[in-house]
């Protein structure tokens, strides 16, 4: 754990090249402690007349227990009010949460960037957006790989497509008659051209070629 006199606290091992991950057992413990402390602080806040400081700390613990999926970062800059610290910590932890376990190691870099920025909230939201972009890119890569796998074989490409096209032709025949169903033939030609175009563009070699 790094305890920064400037007010930044992070749960990391400073000697480790990558931040340490919490085990499932540790995470459950953190969540349990978070919920307990939230309850204590909120009870105390209500008893003491909803003091902003205690309420804020309680909410911070609540947020941290919710985001305790691994490394937990608390931005605790002295120049910010407690509400702003909570908001900023939650934003950064949200970005890390969205980014996924494989990107937790970036936590330290993101934290120092947010701390350096003159507009930490805007930067924090930018990091959330970055995490969303990264996840969408991951999804795109996965879909592209699946598409390449399908296009690499005529069987894998035409069996599912043929089934869909046959279903469409039968459906059109039943609702509008054979005359309209005949017009699905150009669709088959269009699919064939599209598939060949994709194979050329992505440089996919068919099985057996």
């Amino acid at each position: 754990m790094i305890d920064d006199p400037n007010g930044i606290v992070a749960w990391f091992d400073p000697d480790s090249p990558e931040p340490a991950e919490l085990s499932d057992r540790d995470r459950r413990g953190v969540i349990g402690i978070g919920i307990f402390l939230t309850f204590v602080f909120l009870s105390f806040s209500v008893y003491a007349g909803l003091d902003t400081g205690e309420l804020g700390t309680g909410l911070a613990f609540a947020g941290l227990s919710l985001f305790a999926g691994g490394s937990v970062i608390v931005i605790n800059l002295d120049v910010l009010t407690i509400w702003d610290r909570v908001r900023l910590s939650l934003t950064l932890n949200l970005a890390l949460r969205i980014g996924g376990r494989a990107r937790r190691w970036q936590a330290e870099d993101w934290q120092v960037a947010v701390e350096t920025s003159p507009h930490p909230f805007r930067y924090g939201l930018g990091l959330v957006l970055a995490a969303v972009h990264m996840r969408l890119y991951d999804l795109g890569t996965l879909l592209l790989r699946a598409a390449c796998w399908m296009l690499a074989s005529n069987h894998r490409t035409w069996w599912p497509l043929g089934a869909v096209l046959a279903f469409a032709a039968i459906n059109i025949h039943l609702s509008q008659g054979w005359g309209s169903a005949f017009y699905t033939l150009p669709t088959i030609a269009a699919f064939h051209l599209g598939i060949e175009h994709l194979r050329r563009r992505w440089n996919i070699k068919r099985k057996g070629d």
Partner: peptide
Amino acid sequence: WGYRITEETGLGPGTIYPLLE
């Protein structure tokens, strides 16, 4: 580093970090 690149290029972190990755 990430923050310096956002400052120098004027692009947001939402664009820079995925690109760096």
